[in-house]
Amino acid sequence: MTLRLRNLTVGYRRQPVFSHLSLPDIPPGSLVAVAGPNAVGKSTLLRAIAGLLPLQGDILLDGQALAALPPASRRQCIGYLPQLLPQPVPLVAYETVMSACRAVGGVGDLRPLEQAIEQVFDDLGIRSLALRRLSAMSGGQRQMVGLAQVLVRQPQLLLLDEPTSALDLHWQLNVLNVVRAATRRQGTIALLASHDLNLALRFCDQLLVLAPGGHAVLGPPAEVLTPALLSRTYGIEGRIEQCSLGYPIVLADRPSACRP
């Protein structure tokens, strides 16, 4: 299953964020980190692929246009985690996850669904939260429940918008391990928007950097990341080094003289 984005034009109220954006094909099992400065369009891109924004152009999943898929198949294919955390309402985590599976279209036998929910709570390590109300949880805990809502359906394409923004270091690693495992086990493609470049670099196969002006570059992190790109994209002077475990890390030294 390959993801192909061709000639995408997306925007808000006739103000395009991207015009005619095309990217190299993304192979199955890829974890792609989507990086870029604030307001460059990371969330817009994910929302457009998720079908939440009107767009022109083609999004093909395994050669099939997503727009042409019946709504039920499209829902089955895509799992989208919005940047906003689940609301702190008196819903228990278990039924929050169940509602994600039962909200549209019926489920026949409940048992497989119950097993899937149990599995996702175990995978994410949040079993003890299963019967706790969202209103009694911290922001990070609610973010984990939001992730469970997405992962429980085992979609082929995961679109995660800042999935670790409210999490501490332990849970950041935990979540990215679970996503990484899903891509390896099921051939899922995951697009993960994040401001935490070093965390993303540790787990991703490819890096998609969105730069102001609707420019984008996609490729293996080692090839894509250069000090010049950091300067052009983020307006910083920085270095790319390798940590002892072999992962690239970005060291930001200072803001560059001119902001892009």
Binding site: Y80, P82, P86, E95, S99, A100, A103
Partner: peptide, 19 residues
């Protein structure tokens, strides 16, 4: 009922799931 339950947890999530 289930769609409204999902809507309470978040509108964007509900939309993406086809509500």
């Amino acid at each position: 009922a289930w769609a409204m339950t999902l809507l309470r947890s978040g509108e964007e999530q509900a939309r993406s799931l086809g509500v």
